[in-house]
């Protein structure tokens, strides 16, 4: 079995140059000049995505997920290192790669508002050289599957967010790509639309002939439920790469304690307690509470945690111990949550 995609020491640095400005106020120019330091979006990334795999890339905003997708989609050149898709080099064989791939992003607003849903998808299929008859038949089929048939003759500008994203998904599938890049495809969608899209993607990979999906998301449950393997990425670096089950096993000897307490003035002391590996906190000003998610190496630390909270005069409203999730894996490695 060959690899669908592979990266070797892939690095991408953005220099944030500001050029090509004709009419710009001096102050704006000066402010931008102060903000032109290089940003390393991908830092020596080594990944191998197998054919027929549903591969997840999990990380917070700005982790480098979209940059990696753009490099693999031939939209960006690596600064150093190399990347291959379907065995082709992204720096040299762009045309061969483009014939094999498709990409759908969450919150996409592509297409033309005056065209109907069906016309828009057909238009994009033409860019891939699809025969019109085949394209229309496939669009109709996918529209039934995605529950968009009733909206086939509706102008795109009148579609709801969910309907629009379904149209984008159909655009991604209509050309029957070998490798599909999904960049946060369920972003902002309601539960039903998200569930429908997830199930279709799963079926497409499982039933398809060596179809591969690279899914980026910051929804932990989505990655956990869908992906064969998951890479956790932060600040351009791959921190861990394994199956969701194995990733969770990595911290199984640890426990996650979820606490809701009266608002804490400071959480710094929690990090100093022996046995606490990492924790996140979130304040709910309206309810006057702080939610804590604490990963402990030693459950004996729980007593110290409770003492530390009580010492601030705060009351514990609820406490529970949970099974580790991918989010716990992430917190354990990075020391922060996704929010």
């Amino acid at each position: 079995m060959t690899n669908a995609a592979e990266t070797r020491d892939l690095t991408r640095i953005f220099t944030r140059k500001r050029r090509h400005r004709l009419f710009k106020q001096k102050q704006v120019r000066e402010n931008e000049e102060e903000d032109t330091g290089p940003v390393t979006a991908l830092d020596r990334v080594n990944l191998t995505i197998k054919e027929g795999e549903l591969f997840g890339l999990l990380g917070p905003n700005g982790a480098g997920k979209t940059t990696l997708i753009k490099v693999l989609c031939t939209l960006l050149l690596p600064t150093s290192g190399s990347a291959y898709v379907g065995g082709y080099d992204v720096s040299k064989d762009v045309f061969a790669i483009r014939k094999k791939i498709s990409m759908v992003s969450g919150g996409e607003t592509s297409g033309y508002g005056l065209l109907t849903t069906r016309e828009n998808i057909w238009m994009f299929s033409q860019f891939y050289g699809m025969p019109s008859k085949l394209s229309k038949a496939r669009i109709d089929d996918l529209m039934h599957t995605f529950g968009l048939w009733e909206k086939r003759n509706t102008k795109v500008r009148t579609l709801s967010t969910g309907e629009r994203q379904k149209m984008n998904m159909i655009r991604g599938f209509v050309t029957d790509p070998e490798i599909l890049f999904l960049d946060e495809p369920t972003l902002g969608l309601d539960v039903n639309a998200s569930r429908m899209i997830r199930q279709y993607v799963l079926d497409w990979v499982r039933k398809g002939n060596h179809k591969t999906v690279l899914l980026t998301t910051h929804y932990m449950a989505e990655a956990d439920m869908m992906c064969d393997r998951v890479a956790i990425i932060d600040q351009g670096r791959i921190l861990a790469l394994d199956t969701p089950a194995n990733l969770k096993k990595m911290i199984r000897k640890e426990s996650t304690v979820q606490l809701e307490v009266d608002s804490l003035k400071s959480t710094i002391s929690l990090g100093n307690i022996k046995g606490v590996r990492n924790f996140t906190s979130k304040d709910d000003v309206e309810r006057g509470t702080t939610s804590l998610s604490i990963i402990v190496d030693d459950e004996g630390a729980i007593a110290d945690i409770m003492s530390s909270i009580s010492a601030q005069g705060s009351r514990i409203r609820s406490m529970r111990k949970t099974e580790p999730t991918l989010e716990d894996v992430f917190i354990s490695m990075v020391g922060k949550g996704f929010e």
Partner: peptide
């Protein structure tokens, strides 16, 4: 600005055809 350009750029077609 509407998000079409990057989809055009990654399509396997001649840019002049676009």
């Amino acid at each position: 600005e509407v998000g079409n350009l990057q989809l055009y750029m990654m399509a396997p077609m001649s840019r002049m055809a676009l």
